[in-house]
Amino acid sequence: MRTGRVGEVFTAFLWLGLVSFGGPIAHLGYFRETFVVRRRWLSEADYADLVALCQFLPGPASSQVGFALGILRAGGVGGGIAAFFGFTLPSALLLAGFGLAAAQIAGPAAEALLHGLKLVAVAVVAQAVWGMARSLAPDRFRAGIAFLAFAISLLAGGPFAQVLAIAFGAVANLAFDRTAPTPPTGRLEVPIARRAGIIALVLALGLLLAIGGLATAGVSPARFLDAFYRSGALVFGGGHVVLPLLEAATVAPGWVTPDDFLAGYGLAQAVPGPLFTFAAYLGALVGGLGGAAAALFAIFLPGLLLVYGTLPFWDRLRSDRRTQAGMRGANAAVVGVLGAAFYDPVFTSAVLTPWDAVLALGGFLLVTIGNMPAWSAVLLLPLASLLVR
């Protein structure tokens, strides 16, 4: 990959941050078209390698791919930071603004529109569960892992149960999966020393333990940071999978109401860029503009540290059978965790009447059978909810 300038990286990703609708899978398609096909920053094989790495790690996959592309293009971490800010700022500013204005939204019409956004969340999360189940739990054994993860998450509840379910999936598949490892497709030339990678990995784990310890001790700012840092550090699959972790971290302690949470999640489908910027909305509800900035920093930091730390070692990791088997099991468990979140709180909080069920099913069919973008449901369902009410 030819070395470029940080400014070039920022402007390329800022444009993508303004136009990349459709969630993480769509984002990866935009990246491929822009950087592999048109700009020719890297080869198809190298891009596939980056995508595989970021799907292997916890965190927001599309943002991690963008961060890695920026590093490779500009020859250092400055390019990664430029790519991250360019891709993240548009949606972060929009969602933070909505969070700041949420307290001013009142009245029957506003409540009907917000309820429509909750129905959008039902349709979009149902689509995510359906699509992920088909690709990540395609056989009986992994479907069984997904079911048990669903049961653990739903019956036990809380973030610990979700982490336990994902760990169970990884261990179970590692014990019984005998699939041959997928051979590597190429070799990435990474401008990161192994020592720097180790420091980043140690820092990611150290912050998780340190912030979590302070939060357990009752330090108020640490509790806030821990809620978002832990969500970013422990979510596999990115995108919609962060929903149950953020719900457990912000709704369960009473920081955000279930209605506000689901309304914001529905609105997040209408903006471009990474879905993790939903954290800006939640942070703004809790702590204003400063809370939005802190939530964004905390939720994205672990994923970026992990991809930076793993890049120098990826050639070795990707060819290991045990690593691949464990990740296949963890990904199957993620389907069950997201399925539990779909039932509670998404479905139980939004579908309260027969009309709600009709509108939610209509939105689901719109984005699945109709292949319409998620933002079309954001436009239609709130208006339909307003008419019904």
Rank of each mutant, 00 (worst) to 15 (best):
A110Q: 05
A110K: 04
A110G: 14
E111I: 13
E111M: 08
A112T: 07
L113F: 12
L113H: 04
L114N: 00
L114W: 02
H115D: 04
H115A: 05
H115T: 09
G116R: 01
L117R: 07
L117K: 10
L117Y: 13
K118C: 14
L119G: 06
L119M: 14
A121R: 08
A121E: 11
A121Q: 11
V122W: 07
V122C: 14
A123N: 11
A123E: 03
A123Y: 10
V125Q: 01
V125D: 03
V125E: 02
A126P: 07
A126V: 05
A126C: 09
A126G: 07
A126R: 01
Q127L: 14
Q127G: 07
Q127I: 08
Q127Y: 14
Q127D: 15
A128G: 03
A128E: 01
V129N: 00
V129P: 00
V129H: 01
W130K: 07
W130T: 10
G131H: 09
G131P: 02
G131A: 08
G131F: 06
A133Q: 08
A133M: 10
A133Y: 11
R134F: 09
S135P: 04
L136C: 02
L136D: 00
L136S: 01
L136E: 00
A137V: 05
A137M: 11
A137R: 00
P138N: 05
P138V: 09
D139R: 07
D139A: 06
D139S: 08
R140A: 15
R140Q: 12
F141P: 01
F141M: 03
R142H: 10
R142M: 12
R142Y: 08
R142T: 15
A143K: 12
G144F: 06
F147M: 14
F147Q: 11
F147P: 04
L148M: 13
L148E: 08
L148C: 11
A149R: 00
A149Q: 01
F150A: 04
F150G: 03
F150H: 04
F150D: 02
A151Y: 05
A151V: 15
A151T: 11
A151K: 06
A151D: 10
I152C: 08
S153P: 06
S153D: 10
S153H: 09
L154S: 12
L154E: 09
L154N: 08
L154R: 13
L154M: 13
